[in-house]
Amino acid sequence: MMDALIAGKLHARPEERTSAKGGAFATARLRAVAGDGESLFVNCIAFEPQAMAALLALDVGDAVSVAGSITPKVWTDREGTTRPALDIVVARVLTSYHVQRRCGAMAPGASGGPQQRPHQGSGPDDGSEPLDF
């Protein structure tokens, strides 16, 4: 098993399903662009409640990044050409909503975000700017 972080756009609306034993899970299909410019389909399945909720909140065409354990696969298209694909068990989901929320939280003075620190240069007039990491 390999761990990966994959970014792409949702090809189909995520679906919530129930296993034969009654366990809930979510599935999604992601289209990612491979290094050669070809599209690569990524079949996503999420069991973790947070990952499930994040996937189910998305719609077709939404940009998303998923992290988890991947398994490489191949499939055959209508013309008989074999193409690569990936299956991923999603552990984490990152969307533009998460990025905007995190950036807002990290803004100086934001609730829970870093506060402006006093100037920490080597001297009072050294011309350096404070670094906010």
Rank of each mutant, 00 (worst) to 15 (best):
R31K: 02
A32H: 06
M2L: 14
M106A: 10
G68D: 01
P124R: 11
D62W: 09
G8R: 00
E16M: 10
F41S: 02
R117V: 07
G68S: 09
C103P: 13
R78T: 05
P130M: 02
L40Y: 02
Q100W: 01
L30T: 10
C44I: 07
S69E: 14
S39N: 14
D59P: 01
S69F: 00
N43M: 14
M106W: 11
S39T: 05
Q120W: 09
G35M: 00
R13Q: 13
V66T: 05
V66Y: 01
S69K: 15
A54P: 02
S96V: 15
P124Y: 01
G112V: 09
L94G: 01
V99C: 11
P72M: 02
I88C: 07
E38Q: 05
T82V: 01
A110H: 08
S19W: 03
S69L: 15
P114H: 13
P114D: 13
G112E: 01
Y97V: 12
N43T: 11
D3V: 15
M1Q: 13
F25N: 06
I45E: 11
G121H: 00
A34C: 00
A63Y: 00
Q115S: 14
A4D: 08
E15M: 06
G104P: 10
G112H: 00
G123I: 07
A4L: 04
T27Q: 04
L58H: 13
